[in-house]
Design a protein around this nucleic acid. Structure first.
Lengths: 342, 342
DNA sequence: TGTTAGCACTCAACCGCATCGAGTGCTAAA
DNA sequence: TTTAGCACTCGATGCGGTTGAGTGCTAACA
């Protein structure tokens, strides 16, 4: 367990390093107002903290830098709440002032604002498809052999897929089928769709629809491909503002990762209640070993539907970002709930 | 006008620089098989070429580097057709082998393959909305006050928009309206929709639909917002493989530009028949002054629907990229035509 | 007259070396 | 227990010399 003084010093070092990006020496710390000890005392404590694994030394005659463990302790125990500045507040409020109807635009704009306010990369996932319910299904024939299947959810999200029609199917047949599907499947959660398709629709279909076999298969296929979450990425280049990422190779690793949307979902892990912080090597992916990721969930009517997150260097302003994320996720949830709940 | 020998030398210099990324000296050139002159002769010619503006010298005791004018002459007059290697061919054919139904997926996959084959950044725009025709329109009420308006085009593209309903509108009204719209507007090109809405539907609507005014306004709004072209960007990080972009600041300028989709449309300019090459400062945007962009159009049934392009350093393999783009655009056009034409 | 060998010159890149200074660990005194 | 003092470490910075690729110019050559 760390002594009170050790905590004080660790806190001072992390704070300082976050803002300077330079290894911090004992003198710098001893001159801080909140510290009343000489540099020599600090040096002793620093040596101890290093032995305990909270600090690291780039080389013998340099100051100390927090280790992953150091940041972890800082985030878990030392962090002080950040007060949002007027500027931050006014930027954030832009989002809520805007009256955007389109779900995807709201989310995209959220990511944009978030990156702009924090000066880090913003990533927003959402919405979790399996929380959504079917509102309407439609099949639009394009020509003899092709059609578009369209699924609309209660949140106003529209998924569509091009499908091949069985030979010689008649428009009336399709219409009949669509009516059947809508009467049976409306308000069913998306993840149950395939199951319910067999339970409740298949029997009826066999009786009323020609080419029952083919159509069923096509339907299943088109319901299956609902992608999971969509990824909204903004401010990816912000990472290059950080002095520790002045190196093209480092940046490249990170941006390449960000280019692959599927990897991002991995990075975020399962949605959790409240703020989650992943620091440096705590992220499995190697390219992220010098980055931290802070995430939280947003809700519609109390149900989590997606995740918002910030990606920055391990040396990121944890306190500020956490406050911003909390504020934003709460506001976003309120906004979405009032707009999209049932 | 350049002499035959000057062309030969300019060609050799550009070729060499493209592959080495180092300023080329007279000795290097004189040793090439296709050149039969001593380094001294080459030096004289190089001095002339520099005076004429085709070459530049980073500093006195360095070799020469092609200027924008030099590249331009190379591209217009000297380039030799590139033979696609087996590897390139097999990668390109992956695209045509795949049987993807979804338009957007085809385009996205195209960008992916293109970047992978060329090792440069690939950008694909499309499809041009105004070439598409309305296939089906649908309005799905979500609750008392909101609905989703969905527009399906003949290429299978689906656009959707959340709309506010006028107070107290009845579902039957909406159904009536949708039927009316579909019967009047099917097969109308998207760009004519608004106009035709007034010409052909408004009168009928007034007679048959309650809350005529509000609905008309809402409809117009929802048809209006059809975004122009979509942008598919792949391999943005490839630029960092280039030795002249080892500098984070340069890379940042470029990637920031690429993050803004609207800027990209600018960059491509209006679609043209055949290959277009924009070299260095020929691009208006300052961040692009060390980049070249090669574009060409792709077609559905003989009509241009979008643009594919490659972004690389000015020192890019023009010949190879042009061949790849030609081959790919042709194949893509064939593929899309067989799949989507009316 | 065009080409080429030869040569002096230029200049970025590289290397070694000395210096500087921020920061350390240790010791001894307060 | 704290702190002043001091020797020590080592990256960063700066400077002079060397190297070598490449040039322009001149004079000889075919």
């Amino acid at each position: 367990m760390l002594s009170e003084r050790q905590r004080l010093i660790l806190n001072a070092i992390v704070d300082n390093y976050i803002h300077s990006a330079e290894p911090v020496g004992s003198r710098t710390i001893s001159k801080r107002e909140d510290i009343g000890f000489s540099s020599a005392t600090i040096r002793n404590e620093m040596a101890d903290l290093e032995e305990l694994g909270y600090l690291e030394q780039p080389h013998t005659s340099a100051g100390r830098v927090p280790s992953t463990k150091g940041y972890r302790f800082y985030v878990d125990n030392l962090i002080k709440p950040h007060m949002l500045s007027d500027l931050e507040l006014s930027k954030l409020k832009q989002l809520f002032a805007e009256r955007i109807h389109h779900f995807e635009q709201v989310i995209d704009y959220t990511a944009q604002i978030l990156s702009h306010v924090t000066n880090y990369t913003a990533i927003v996932l959402g919405p979790e498809i399996f929380e959504q319910r079917l509102k309407h299904i439609q099949i639009v024939p394009l020509n003899e052999t092709q059609a578009v299947a369209i699924v609309v959810t209660n949140t106003g999200r529209v998924e569509n897929k091009l499908i091949d029609l069985p030979q010689g199917v008649r428009p009336q047949e399709i219409e009949k089928l669509v009516n059947l599907l809508n009467s049976k499947l409306t308000d069913v959660p998306l993840w149950q769709l395939r199951q319910r398709l067999y339970q409740e629709v298949a029997g009826e279909m066999r009786r009323h629809v020609e080419q029952y076999e083919e159509m069923l298969q096509i339907l299943e296929e088109s319901l299956q491909r609902q992608e999971g979450e969509r990824v909204y990425l903004r401010g990816a280049t912000k990472i290059m503002d950080q002095p520790e990422f002045r190196d093209v190779d480092k940046v490249k690793d990170i941006l390449e990762l960000l280019e692959q949307n599927d990897q991002l979902v991995h990075l975020f892990g399962p949605p959790t209640e409240g703020i989650t912080v992943r620091i440096g090597q705590e992220n499995q992916l190697d390219a992220m070993k010098e980055c931290s990721i802070i995430t939280t969930s947003y809700y519609i009517g109390g149900k989590p539907v997606g995740t918002v997150g910030i990606l920055g260097p391990t040396r990121m302003e944890y306190s500020r970002v956490i406050t911003v994320l909390n504020y934003l996720a709460e506001g976003l949830s309120r906004m979405l709930t009032s707009q999209f709940e049932k």
